[in-house]
Nucleic acid binder design. Structure first.
Lengths: 354, 354
DNA sequence: TTGTAGGCGTTATCAC
DNA sequence: GTGATAACGCCTACAA
């Protein structure tokens, strides 16, 4: 019933100009600080703006200026706990230069990744940050021709409007594995992520290389594939315990899977870390509150988010950006302990009644 | 160096029209299905679009049509684990009607809430969803005149372009408290959220009313204020244990604080649930993976998100929307158990060496 | 310093 | 069916 009537807020720059007795351009200048304006007119305009509660139309502004002051951020699923700190870093850093992040999810589908990128470009975002993507490097380069682009976890050669932030997953995984080896573990299980996922692959490589360096034979039965989710970690741990009862430690290639694994161990009465040591990867904010606090490979996600945001800003300014690989650090907490003699299942039957 | 050159993707509707030998209006019609067009021209235009990889400029389109197909979503902090499922529900539901969510954070500041809302309106969003806000009802009503507005956790009278989704925090808190009372607990501590936070207040009320109904005297020393964060829950639990060692159960008014509390209990060697029962509120996705799995009041956040999204769509269509209060359900898991005789500290000193 | 005029890329209202 | 023509609300030379 109250359509054009109540949908106010449609005061335009022109009306302000009229009310203040100046030309539209003068109002625009005051709004953008584009040029000096006489005090008298300045005052008149500001008064009118306040009076009419004028809000410039962002759309019109962007259309005319060609800049939207918006940065597209592509994630697999913005609601995942995994992305929290990243987004926070991006959001915080983008605020100061007056940019608004536009978060979109591609839901683990390469096709949707491309579709979302197209959508972002159709919105004429000033730049794009791609947080993990399976999208081909070729396509990335192509997209970077349409808007400055920052990608995480790749190591493409830097270009005029493309920047990469490689993350050393392999070294992180190696550190974690070496930590367990150093504690005397020899039967270290590995819960892998999706087989076609870059991070997942690199972490597996790190695990294997640490084993190899330590002269520990790779045991196929100790590696099980999962999908980076808690439920996946749960199932993986069950399979593992059934197939490889001799394991004394488990390295999950992300924290969410470690949560799932932890639950299986609890259910079976297997103590952590007394009976089995557990290591995660990512250091999600809640991992330090696990019982006991989870030993894990820390990714400085908040800081990475900040870096990525700063990088797009630089690209937009036309600068070329080169970023050093991000080092990951092992956070030794309380789920790891030196290896006990007996394998997991023996211990379990000692510990629990049913 | 490569400015206007490489920033392609700037094919316009007009160029397509020229290439296809038709007028811009015809192209527009085909794009929007606004009217029937002869097959010949249809084909020609589609060919040109494919050839030029034409992408309509969303900005221009919105400016001309007055609709942005964008819904603003205001949260306190989009990166919080608390919002994950909400956002997912909203995102999923908005996709089908072709709407894009625009997520913004107000960082617990009422002023920023207003600022962000203004910003969303300046972007001419087609509607707004406010997930928790301390913003005054007055202001909400005012904003709803500028765009259809859906608010969670309020119970304002429904209007032409305002819908509320009340959430029965009080009943949820009462259920949880009654659960503990039913298990024989009489010294039930309560970890509250921010004192000026609506949800927080309602949950405290529920706790108190359950105690009163059961004839259990309210013990001031058992209630401690915190801030809905893990760290806050940690500190609160420490204070609690020092000040009220006779407690046998703790009800944290959100899961994040329960995580913090859990860690303190672990540190002090107090077993959960054998020595102390623990209850949370929200049922975050990871709560079921706690050790042991957390008993908590479940908010069907994903579903609420869907409801809210559906509500804005209805409002936009001009319908009036009334939503029933969301019922919360107690998820009894493994952190609660019938009350033991001895108070916490006694038990702790029995259990732990240091 | 200030105003005028044209343009940004679409949609929408007309006639034809 | 199709095509001019005028918005949409702002920016930006250009001119004064």
């Amino acid at each position: 019933m109250n359509d054009s009537v109540s949908r106010t807020g449609n005061v335009t720059l022109e009306e302000i100009a009229r009310a203040a007795g100046v030309s539209p351009s003068t109002v625009s200048r005051i709004l953008n600080g584009t040029a000096r304006v006489s005090d008298a007119k300045q005052q008149a305009v500001e008064k009118a703006i306040a009076e009419f509660q004028y809000q410039p139309n962002v759309l019109a502004r962007s259309l005319a200026s060609g800049r939207t002051h918006t940065i597209g951020v592509l994630t697999q699923a913005i609601a995942s706990p995994f992305y929290g700190e990243w987004l926070r870093g991006i959001e915080d850093t983008l605020r100061e230069p007056g940019l608004t992040p536009l978060f979109v999810s591609s839901h683990w589908s390469p096709e949707e990744e491309a579709a979302r990128l197209e959508q972002l470009l159709a919105r004429r975002v000033d730049g794009v940050i791609v947080l993990h993507g399976q999208i081909s490097e070729d396509l990335l380069v192509r997209y970077s021709a349409r808007a400055p682009l920052v990608v995480l976890g790749r190591s493409l050669a830097p270009r005029a409007s493309l920047a990469c932030l490689p993350i050393d997953n392999e070294a992180g995984a190696r550190d974690a594995t070496e930590h367990l080896l150093g504690l005397g573990h020899r039967h270290i299980a590995f819960v892998a992520g999706p087989p076609d996922h870059g991070d997942s692959i690199e972490r597996l490589v790190g695990y294997r290389s640490a084993l190899a360096d330590a002269g520990v034979a790779f045991d196929e039965s100790l590696v099980v594939q999962a999908d980076f989710t808690e439920a996946g970690g749960f199932r993986a741990m069950e399979r593992l315990l059934d197939a490889a009862p001799h394991l004394t430690a488990v390295f999950c290639s992300n924290d969410q899977m470690a949560y799932g694994a932890r639950l299986v161990l609890y259910r079976r009465g297997i103590r952590v870390p007394e009976d089995v040591s557990l290591v995660g990867f990512d250091d999600l904010p809640t991992s330090v509150y696990m019982t006991p606090p989870l030993t894990t490979v820390r990714q400085p996600t908040y800081e990475i988010g900040c870096l990525a945001a700063r990088a797009v800003v630089q690209l937009i300014r036309g600068e070329t950006v080169t970023m050093d690989p991000i080092p990951l650090t092992l956070e030794v907490r309380e789920t790891t302990q030196s290896c006990a003699a007996r394998p997991a299942l023996d211990r379990a039957s000692n510990t629990v009644a049913g």
